[in-house]
Design a protein around this nucleic acid. Structure first.
Length: 263
DNA sequence: ATGGTCGGTCCCCGA
């Protein structure tokens, strides 16, 4: 059977609820990792999403950030409601759970990695420190030797072919060499970036800014990623970027990325 | 013609 795992930065679940319900109804992902829900847990439209057959777990925050995990299969254990490594970090950017999929447990995290702009500066320092915490935690997770997908908005453009005009982004926190190095450090642990593994084509984007006609000009960037443990990568069959979602009424600036696994 | 956006909250910030 095929297990599909999606990631989508919705840029406010309240503003995006009709789009989210429409997309869930047509794409029917088994597991969906959402980012930037921009609301506290009590304000999340849980009932509407549960009505489509999903179990729901959220780590919310007023106005900013916020992540959610939706699953057709039971969420057996919420393993983390924050990224370990800094008790003083109050930003809602990480949730990790074990899903009871029909053929065995699958661990999934929904990640909203800090943007980091302007760089250099305290926000970029926070981004790099957060990525180092993610690296340390992701390293430990490999010891489980289980199918694991770290899905989310990484705010990293991995390669120059993942942006319409690399020169226009020079110096930006999403493309800076130090940001990229921190992302590559995750891959060097043994994680596989699903899109590059399955497809790898140039000019396949997951985000188009609301400003400056970025969408009609196709001036996008690819920053939403699925990082797979070896046990997940072995079972990875395909990755799809649901680009058409960007052209809909009241669209998020990001689109869903869906991985299909023989799990 | 060198502009142009959203979303949340509150009168500006983050992306």
């Amino acid at each position: 059977m095929t297990l599909s795992i999606a990631t989508w930065n919705v840029n406010s679940i309240k503003a995006r609820l009709p789009n989210v319900l429409e997309w869930l109804g047509e794409a029917k992902p088994d597991i969906a990792c959402l980012q930037e829900i921009k609301c506290v847990d009590e304000a999340f439209p849980r009932e509407e999403i549960e009505a489509l057959g999903y179990n729901v777990e959220t780590v919310g925050q007023k106005s900013y950030n916020g992540v959610a995990l939706l699953s057709r299969f039971p969420i057996e254990e919420v393993a983390q409601r924050a990224l370990p490594g800094d008790e003083s970090d109050e930003q809602a950017r990480y949730i990790e759970a074990v899903i009871g999929a029909p053929n065995g447990p699958v661990r999934v995290a929904s990640i909203y990695l800090p943007n980091g702009n302007p760089a250099p500066g305290p926000k970029h320092d926070y981004k790099l420190a957060w990525m180092e915490r993610l690296r340390a935690h992701a390293k430990g997770l490999l010891a489980y030797e289980e199918p694991l997908v770290l899905a989310g908005d990484y705010n990293i453009i991995p390669r120059d072919v993942d942006v319409h005009d690399p020169a226009a982004w020079e110096g930006d926190a999403l493309i800076r060499p130090d940001s990229r190095d921190a992302f590559f450090a995750l891959l060097w642990l043994g994680y596989t970036e699903a899109f590059q593994h399955c497809d790898g084509r140039a000019d396949q984007y997951t985000f188009w800014d609301y400003q400056a006609g970025a969408w009609p000009k196709n001036h996008g960037i690819r920053i939403d990623h699925l990082l797979c443990s070896p046990q997940a990568a072995d079972r990875l069959k395909s990755v799809e970027i649901h680009k058409d979602v960007r052209g809909r009424e009241k669209a998020s600036d990001h689109v869903p990325v869906v991985g299909s696994f023989a799990l």
